[in-house]
């Protein structure tokens, strides 16, 4: 075997292995990650390489954090679930939290310690119900939606119908996202507890 052939085989292997690696790591998150349900907002734009998709937005504003962040700085946000079982971004950290699921993203806007200011103003106005111990002294930040959560690629024939369903059934929709070791994969969109594809074709 010539050197050129050896190089070609190595090159070909890398080209093939990259999609394989991406597929396997995604499959791993989808099989082993914990499922979270997020409440969405969506519409259908177009990607020249990958076709139609539904863009999904989440509540990403006013995430509390004990740390000071600049714009565009990397932030690790922990995920928690409310009483109804819906997930939300709980708190921002400088490094990945050890005992919780988290996602990595960047800070889009740092709004400062709003609640603390409000509480202090109330105290100065003579409100005596405020307990100094209970005061939330944390800052608030807005974050960018973490990677792999805001595009749901969909068959071109279903895109428009799906968009209308998302508009009409907003109250009965959630996004299933699997999270494992800081990696997120959008699993499916559920309408009335059915995957959107199934719901559209029922």
């Amino acid at each position: 075997m010539t050197i050129k052939k050896g190089f070609f085989i190595a090159f070909a292997a890398i080209i093939v292995l990259i999609p394989v690696y991406v597929a396997l790591s995604s499959q791993n998150v989808l099989s082993n990650g914990k499922q979270y349900k997020f409440k969405p907002m969506a519409y259908d734009p177009f990607d020249p390489f990958r076709g139609k998709y539904l863009r999904i937005n989440y509540e990403t504003n006013f995430i509390p954090t004990k740390f000071g962040f600049d714009e565009r700085e990397t932030i690790y946000v922990s995920i928690a679930e409310d009483e109804e079982g819906f997930a939300y971004f709980e708190e921002g950290f400088k490094s990945p939290p050890k005992d919780k699921d988290y996602l990595e993203t960047t800070v889009s806007f740092s709004s400062g310690a709003d609640e603390l200011t409000r509480d202090l103003e109330r105290m100065m106005d003579g409100d005596e119900d405020i307990d100094f111990e209970d005061m939330d002294t944390r800052q608030r930040v807005n974050i960018k939606i973490p990677n792999n959560m805001n595009k749901y690629f969909i068959n071109e024939d279903d895109a428009l119908k799906a968009e209308r369903v998302l508009e009409k059934e907003r109250e009965h929709i959630y996004i299933a996202v699997r999270i494992l070791d800081g990696e997120a994969r959008l699993e499916d969109i559920y309408v009335h507890d059915q995957p959107i594809k199934k719901y559209l074709h029922k």
């Binding site: 990259i18 999609p19 597929a23 989808l30 990958r50 990677n147 792999n148 805001n150 595009k151």
Partner: peptide, 28 residues
């Protein structure tokens, strides 16, 4: 090469980082 990366990212709903996609494509 770009088509394969696009296809796998469509399958697994990876909106991903567009510049990262371009970097991988260009290096290959």
């Amino acid at each position: 090469i770009g088509a394969s990366i696009a296809l796998v990212s469509q399958t697994y709903q990876l909106d991903g980082d567009f510049t990262k996609f371009i970097k991988v494509w260009a290096v290959l």
